Amino acid sequence: MPLEKLIDNIESAWAIWKITESETQLSDKINSIDRVPESVTNPFKRLEYLAGRVVIKKLLENWSLQYEGLVKDEFGKPYLKNFSFHISLSHSYPYVAAVINQKFAVGIDLEQPKEKLLRIGPRVLNQQELQDAGIDIVKHCIYWCSKEALIKIYGKKDLMLAKNLAIEPFSIQKQGSITGRIIVGSNETLVKLNYHVSDNFVVVHN
């Protein structure tokens, strides 16, 4: 079954979907409510687009609610039609992750640990984070996902990963909690993040 995981915490829930379906099969699962834009031509991106909506639909159905589609704001942040809930999506083919919260802004990011994270590390991590991550690709992946989740919580795209977002050092485990900070001018917001490490991917969410 493509639904890899679904965790419900009453007012918040998150899930991971593994894509095994065709584009038509995914579209049928949401009754063609959302159609892939013609500008999206990459076949894998088209599958990710639809699968993200399928997993959001599953999260709503878990609360006995009906999915009616998604819209995006000027910053590309997704919102549900006819619900005031907060949502966030992430994808790294063939996996798609989503989180939904009835009251608070949320962010989720899923990535597959790859060598490129070591190369881009100096551009996205501060010196303390770089020293803590070392050459551990999985730890670099947790840092990367954490910062991407923070951006989604903030909801705008004017943040610099190394400057405006900070993650406290941590000891890596299969799952755990870490503290993130969103720093904008003199304002600093602390965010508790949860991470999960599987054999194939890392996912971080609040």
Rank of each mutant, 00 (worst) to 15 (best):
G176F: 04
D158C: 02
L110R: 11
A51F: 06
V124Q: 00
I183W: 00
G180L: 09
Q173E: 14
A133G: 12
T179S: 14
Y67F: 15
E148P: 02
K58F: 11
L165I: 01
K156C: 03
I56L: 15
H140K: 10
R123E: 09
D136W: 08
I142V: 15
G76F: 03
V184W: 00
I135M: 13
Q112K: 15
P169I: 05
D136A: 07
L65I: 08
K147T: 02
I108D: 06
Q175L: 11
N82H: 12
I120S: 01
Y143Q: 08
S88D: 03
V184N: 08
V138K: 14
C141M: 03
L159A: 02
I178S: 01
A51M: 07
K57N: 12
S146G: 06
L60G: 07
Q66N: 11
F83H: 13
N164A: 02
I182S: 00
A105M: 04
F85W: 10
K163S: 10
G107S: 10
F104Y: 15
K157F: 04
A98Y: 05
A149Q: 04
S171A: 10
I151S: 00
I56F: 13
K81R: 12
H91T: 04
D136M: 08
P94K: 09
D132I: 07
T179I: 15
A97S: 14
K147N: 02
Q175K: 15
I172A: 11
F75T: 07
A97G: 15
V99S: 12
E61M: 12
F85V: 03
V54A: 04
G176N: 05
S171V: 13
R123G: 01
A51L: 07
G180V: 08
Q112M: 14
P122Q: 08
N101R: 06
I135Q: 14
A162M: 04
A166F: 11
G121S: 15
G155M: 12
L65T: 08
L65H: 11
Q175A: 09
W63Q: 14
S177P: 00
S146L: 02
A105R: 12
L50A: 01
G176T: 03
Y93G: 03
W144I: 13
S92Q: 13
I120W: 00
A149S: 15
S88G: 05
K156R: 13
L80I: 11
C145M: 00
Y143T: 09
Y154W: 07
F104R: 14
A133S: 13
G52M: 07
S92T: 13
Y93S: 05
Q127M: 06
W144R: 12
R123M: 10
W144Q: 12
Q66I: 09
I120N: 00
L125P: 01
L59G: 08
K156L: 05
L59W: 09
I100V: 15
N62K: 14
L165A: 01
D73R: 07
L59H: 09
L125A: 11
K139F: 05
I135S: 14
L70K: 09
Q127D: 12
I172Y: 03
S171I: 13
C145D: 00
A149W: 03
V54R: 05
